[in-house]
């Protein structure tokens, strides 16, 4: 299981990355894509959609399982990964890079301190 060190992790198996422009990129972890199996469908919100803390923002589906996507911080969706909805397999192949899902502009009070670091997340699924 691959858990890059520079990311924040949630107990519902999403990762968040702080970008230099202040946005946050969100995706699912390597563990999650492996548990789901071959992903056949990705549903993402529209750009401009406002998300509350832990709001469900979409789903990823394999043939026989569904993963609901939750965003740990509140904010506004500023970009979605159309490549992932067009070709869901990239979420399996590259969950942390090409297979990212959404970018959000976090609200001012957004706080990542409650999230896990890579070591804690890896320990969760050890």
């Amino acid at each position: 299981m691959n858990t890059p060190p520079d990311l924040f992790y949630t107990s519902s198996d999403e990762w968040l990355r702080r970008e230099s422009d202040g946005t946050l990129t969100v995706g699912i972890t390597d563990y999650a894509q492996h548990e789901l199996g071959e992903i056949v469908y990705v549903e993402l919100p529209e750009i401009g959609h406002k998300l509350g803390v832990d709001a469900m923002f979409g789903v990823v589906e394999s043939v026989k399982a569904v993963g609901e996507l939750h965003c740990a911080v509140s904010g506004e969706v500023v970009e979605i990964n159309v490549a992932a909805t067009d070709n869901p397999t990239i979420v399996n192949e590259s969950p942390y890079q090409d297979g990212w899902l959404i970018k959000i502009k976090p609200d001012a009070e957004a706080d990542l301190t409650g999230l896990m670091d890579a070591a804690a997340y890896a320990a969760l699924h050890a």
Binding site: V63, K64, V66
Partner: peptide, 9 residues
């Protein structure tokens, strides 16, 4: 598209 159905969803 069985993920629509009750045995999964």
């Amino acid at each position: 598209l069985q993920t629509r159905e009750q045995h999964i969803r």
